[in-house]
């Protein structure tokens, strides 16, 4: 799926004051890309992710999925797109507490009206957690929790994984494992968009977009990991 942001702005109202978060962002993410979005805190990179993830709406400009403007979609249609086409991975994992790993992975399927325990277990195996399927999040390490979250993002076979600082709460060894997992997914054709402010994490991506003050200031291919042929 191709994602396009076309001159997108976003302004938050804080009481009487308007706080601009995005000041006109134009960005195209092609199918199969591995993009790292970098920038200091407050640069607008998370806001950009939320708009791409259909969790937020732009103040002006357009957000296009495969060329189709998502502004016209209803709440239900946006939820359906989030459910089928997008997978989220968050910095703080965001697993349901008191709920076993496998049921966390099943969660998107619940909202799709599917109950496929074998599918959930297969995806957990894919991220190397088959043995811990029935553990509660509190019984898992940070890295394991993030793997559960990735499994949850994968279970509906989405087109795009949106990862917002996925390694922010992990030590460097575990971070490397998670990034390896995301890179492996990308090699299989999954589009991955990653927000980070750590250079060594961004180094796994094939393209690095830098934000500052609500604008894209640089957009370069990663010199160390050139895109494979056929992907722009």
């Amino acid at each position: 799926m191709q994602l396009d942001l076309d001159d997108v702005t976003k302004t938050y109202r804080m009481g009487a004051v308007d706080v601009p978060a995005l000041r006109g962002v134009t960005l195209r993410i092609a199918p199969g890309e591995f993009v790292a979005v970098m920038g200091p805190s407050g640069s607008g990179k998370s806001t950009c992710m939320n708009i791409l993830g259909l969790l937020d709406r732009p103040t002006s400009g357009r957000c296009l999925f495969d060329g189709r403007d998502v502004a016209s979609l209803s709440d239900g249609e946006r939820a359906r797109l989030r459910n089928r086409r997008l997978g989220f991975v968050f910095q703080s994992f965001n697993l349901l507490p008191r709920t076993p790993a496998v049921e966390n992975v099943e969660l998107p399927m619940v909202y799709a009206g599917r109950f496929e325990r074998p599918r959930a277990l297969a995806v957990l195996e894919r991220v190397g957690l088959a043995a811990r399927a029935h553990h509660l999040p509190t019984q898992l390490s940070g890295g394991e929790q993030q793997r559960v979250a990735i499994a949850r993002a994968l279970v509906m076979e989405p087109a795009v994984i949106l990862a917002d600082e996925p390694t922010g709460n992990l030590d460097s060894a575990t971070s490397a494992e998670i990034m390896g997992l995301l890179a492996a997914l990308n090699r299989e054709g999954m589009t991955v968009v990653l927000v980070t402010h750590e250079a060594d994490v961004a180094a796994h991506a094939r393209r690095i977009v830098r934000f500052r003050d609500g604008r894209v200031v640089r957009d370069d291919p990663n010199a160390r990991r050139p895109a494979p042929a056929g992907v722009r």
Binding site: G53, D75, G76, L96, P97, L107, Y111, R152
Partner: peptide, 16 residues
């Protein structure tokens, strides 16, 4: 609230 946010992110509609 956080649980609701998670559910919405993975595709729960307002109605769900």
């Amino acid at each position: 609230t956080r649980e609701i946010g998670i559910r919405k992110a993975v595709g729960a509609t307002r109605r769900d």
